[in-house]
């Protein structure tokens, strides 16, 4: 359904408040992946990896500087007028920090009516439809007259989801949709999303830094580092048998395996100072000469996933190296 080809988002900004020098930020640098209908593609990585930017490009909110995004075969960023409207209707985004994604001066009723009114000029049946949508996300009628600041984070996120659903989308981009919420609330939202997917066949692009969450929710996953996808494959596989050294460390960190920190050297990267060759090489304990010079491309690994690393097979085979 969705195909991202060689997506790049570069921008430049002044280095400091008073400086004239400009720094170039390669937030996203040549990313490609595909999402199948009714499946969930997880995009995982640490802060600054570029995942939110990818999400914004897919949702039509940020213009990429290079590459294409094909939705049902059509280049999203070349669409105009009616076709663009239809695209926006079919792809909706759920944001991090629920309360910020709702207009603070609008009631829930107004928030959810807005998309309904855009789709059709049918005013009379709107209220009934709004109540239906609220029901879908587990909220009752009493919420109609509430303002965002009167509701909890979880409730706000449900309203945001209801609003997205009102557009009758096919693809939902979920950008850290549960990051600000308590664990138990997160579980509720996740269950809701999965239920909706099973019943209504939605496709999800699930962006998160929480590996446990992404592995649970996604069918396929792409691991991002400094603007690139360095590993891409089936979700369970990638998290039980990671092939890229970064994925391995990330996995170990999220499981709080204490020794993992030993395998990571140096400081986290900055987007303004992207290393030459393999971007991970300054922190990788397996780095060699070739890693410093040549950027690895995504190639197929042993179990069907794709890895961008010069030495993935050696790391796999040489148990001594991983000790």
């Amino acid at each position: 359904m969705l195909s991202v080809n060689n997506l790049s988002v570069h921008y430049s900004r002044r280095r400091g408040f008073l400086s004239r020098a400009r720094e170039h930020i390669r937030a996203v640098d040549g990313i490609s992946f595909e999402i199948e209908s009714s499946k969930t593609f997880g995009l995982v990585g640490e802060s600054g990896a570029g995942k939110s930017t990818v999400g914004m490009c897919v949702a039509g909110l940020t213009r990429p500087t290079g590459g294409q995004i094909l939705f049902d075969g059509a280049d999203v960023w070349k669409l105009k007028g009616q076709a663009r409207m239809r695209f926006h209707q079919q792809v909706q985004m759920i944001f991090q920090n629920p309360i910020s994604s709702l207009d603070p001066r609008w009631t829930v009723k107004q928030i959810i009516s807005e998309p309904l009114l855009r789709l059709s000029k049918d005013n009379e049946r709107s209220e009934g439809k709004i109540i239906d949508l609220l029901g879908l996300v587990g909220l009752n009628e009493s919420f109609l007259s509430r303002y965002p600041h009167q509701m909890s984070g979880g409730q706000n996120q449900r309203v945001a989801i209801a609003r997205a659903l009102a557009m009758e989308p096919r693809l939902l981009v979920l950008d850290e949709a549960t990051s600000g919420l308590d664990v138990s609330v997160q579980a509720q939202i996740v269950n809701l999303l999965l239920k909706l997917q099973k019943e209504l066949g939605f496709t999800y692009l699930f962006i998160s830094h929480d590996l446990g969450l992404v592995s649970y929710v996604s069918d396929y996953v792409g691991v991002m580092y400094l603007g690139q996808i360095i590993e891409n494959g089936d979700s369970s596989l990638t998290f039980t048998a990671p092939r890229h050294p970064y994925t391995q460390v990330l996995l170990a960190s999220s499981k709080f395996e204490m020794d993992a920190s030993k395998s990571l050297r140096g400081e986290p990267p900055s987007l303004t100072n992207v290393p030459q060759g393999c971007r991970f090489h300054p922190r990788c304990r397996f780095a060699t000469e070739i890693c410093r010079e040549k950027e690895p491309q995504l190639e197929s690994a042993d179990l069907g996933q794709k890895v961008a690393c010069h030495h993935w097979s050696e790391i796999l085979n040489d148990a001594k190296l991983t000790a």
């Binding site: 914004m56 949702a59 039509g60 909110l61 663009r84 409207m85 926006h88 209707q89 792809v91 909706q92 985004m93 944001f95 991090q96 920090n97 910020s100 994604s101 709702l102 207009d103 603070p104 807005e114 998309p115 855009r118 945001a160 609003r163 557009m167």
Partner: peptide, 13 residues
């Protein structure tokens, strides 16, 4: 740059 404005943009406004 607030999210609810982005959301409105996302609806094609």
């Amino acid at each position: 740059t607030r999210n609810f404005v982005l959301a409105a943009k996302g609806m094609g406004e």
